[in-house]
Computed example of a mutant assay.
Amino acid sequence: MKPIAPCLLSLLLLLPAAVPAARWSEPEIAGLVTRAEVDEISGLAASRTRPGHYWAINDSGNAAVLALLDGRGRFMGSVPAPVPNVDWEDLASFELDGRRYLLIADTGDNGGLRRELALQVLEEPRSLEQAPTLAWTVRFRWPDGPRDCEAVAVDPARGEILLVSKKRVPPELFRLPLRAEGLQVAELLGTLQGIPQPSAEDLARNPVYGRYRSQVTAADLGPDGRILAVLTYRAVHYLEREAGTGWAEALARPVQSLPMPWMPQAEAIAFSVDGRELRVASEQLPSPILRYRLKASGK
Rank of each mutant, 00 (worst) to 15 (best):
I29P: 01
G31H: 01
V86F: 13
T49G: 15
P84Y: 08
G61Y: 12
W88H: 06
A45E: 07
A67Q: 11
V83T: 03
R35Y: 05
S25M: 07
S42C: 14
P82C: 03
A67L: 10
H53F: 11
L91I: 00
L68C: 05
A67R: 12
G77W: 11
N85F: 14
R48T: 00
N85E: 06
S78D: 05
A30W: 03
I41H: 11
M76S: 09
W55Q: 07
W55T: 03
W24T: 00
P84H: 06
G43T: 04
L91T: 01
G52S: 05
S47W: 04
N62C: 12
G52H: 06
V33W: 04
T49K: 13
G71L: 02
S78P: 09
G52W: 08
G43N: 08
Y54N: 03
G43D: 07
H53C: 15
E37S: 12
A81Y: 05
R74Q: 09
I57P: 11
E40M: 08
V86R: 12
V65F: 15
A67C: 14
E40K: 13
V83H: 10
P27W: 02
G43L: 14
E37D: 11
V65N: 10
G77D: 02
G31R: 01
S78I: 00
W55E: 04
T49S: 09
R50P: 03
L91M: 07
A56P: 12
G73M: 08
E26H: 03
V65R: 15
T34N: 01
G52L: 07
E28N: 03
V86W: 14
L91H: 12
W24D: 04
D90L: 13
E40D: 10
A56E: 04
R74T: 00
V38R: 04
G73L: 08
L66W: 10
L66P: 13
A36S: 13
A46N: 06
Y54R: 05
T49H: 09
N85M: 09
